[in-house]
Design a protein around this nucleic acid. Structure first.
Lengths: 192, 192
DNA sequence: TATCTACCATACGCACGAGTATGTAATCGC
DNA sequence: GCGATTACATACTCGTGCGTATGGTAGATA
């Protein structure tokens, strides 16, 4: 990912456009993704865009696939590297709870599931994450059937939390209250 | 709500437009709500629409408020009428799990949270439901703080489930598997 | 240094959906 | 049964955002 801001005045690549698109999506949602708006934000005009992409749809597709590939590899590998399986779940919970930034794109895509292009991407990403969760629960000692259901429940709670908090700003919750909520989640959803 | 289909050829009221709008939202999402499309579906033209409503925005607003008021009063009152507080939660879970139709509008609005008009409505509805859930948990014996957190968790799981299943079609789950999942939810989230 | 190509600007066309202007048929109060 | 109001049709305007056509410029290449 290109971390640089706007004041850079070199020439742009397709990846620059995709990154900018993802930033705009995270900030204002998929509906705000318009080529002229993006071009203004990058300090160029449409002429540039249509050299790199055939259509707006193509940009969205490329940006989504880039996001999907870039993924969350670090988190998964770091969690799986932990020696004690029982310790993985609390660590995972606390981690996603306190690193909300990486989830902003996912949250933005969640509230844009009426756009047909995002549905398959979200389906794949969510599926992979749920399989990862299922494995963790099995390694923590749950029988296969129960591990699967618990993973479904946990991931649904994650998705719902993003919607209720990020988007609806609900409930109005303080920092301490939030920590208490996370601990409650761990106590309720973690076996043993 | 007017249950009648299209072949009726009487004159329309504002409520008819609102009901049709809600049906269209449930079927194709908020983004598909266009006045000419709605008019076609009702067998009339735009001229009719702009007699009943000043703008498209006004129709959406009216439809949302209508949905909010119409609400889920029956479910809440029926549950609260149950004598044994401990029996309410399992009953509530099984009920919402097997009556998915009334949740279609809610699910459609969930994937349209990038439309500014739906956010406050969804915030109010979700807030009220969570307060209802919190009460149930308290009456089931949980201390206030824990009841609140458990309600947050449960409602987040509900919201996430709608997104993952209705919209993403994920996970591909059979009828029996689904029943098992519901029972797992009850066992995990119900105190005692 | 000539030119070639990648990158971008400018100026259009075009479709689509919201909203307006105005005429007309049906229905109600009396 | 007659004017007034309600409900709708028809035919426009207009803004917005996508895509296209075409010409320009800076850096690489030879």
């Amino acid at each position: 990912m290109n971390v640089s801001a706007k004041p850079e005045r070199t020439r742009l690549s397709a990846e620059d456009w995709e990154d900018a698109a993802l930033r705009l999506i995270a900030d204002q949602g998929v509906g705000a993704l318009a080529v002229e708006a993006l071009a203004r934000q990058l300090g160029v005009t449409k002429g540039s865009f249509y050299w790199h992409f055939r259509t707006r749809e193509a940009l969205l597709q490329a940006a989504l696939e880039r996001w999907e590939q870039y993924g969350e590899r670090e988190v998964i590998s770091q969690i799986e590297a932990m020696p004690d399986p029982r310790a993985r779940l609390p660590e995972l919970f606390r981690r996603v709870a306190h690193e909300l930034a990486p989830h902003r794109v996912y949250a933005a895509l969640l509230k844009a599931l009426d756009h047909p292009q995002v549905v398959p991407v979200m389906a794949r990403v969510s599926q992979r994450r749920m399989e990862f969760l299922t494995n963790i629960y099995r390694e923590a000692g749950l029988p296969p059937e129960e591990a699967l259901n618990r993973a479904r429940l946990t991931y649904a709670a994650y998705v719902g939390f993003l919607q209720l908090n990020f988007t609806l700003g609900l409930p109005r919750i303080s920092h301490d209250e939030f920590d208490a909520y996370v601990e409650h989640m761990i106590k309720t959803l973690t076996p043993g």
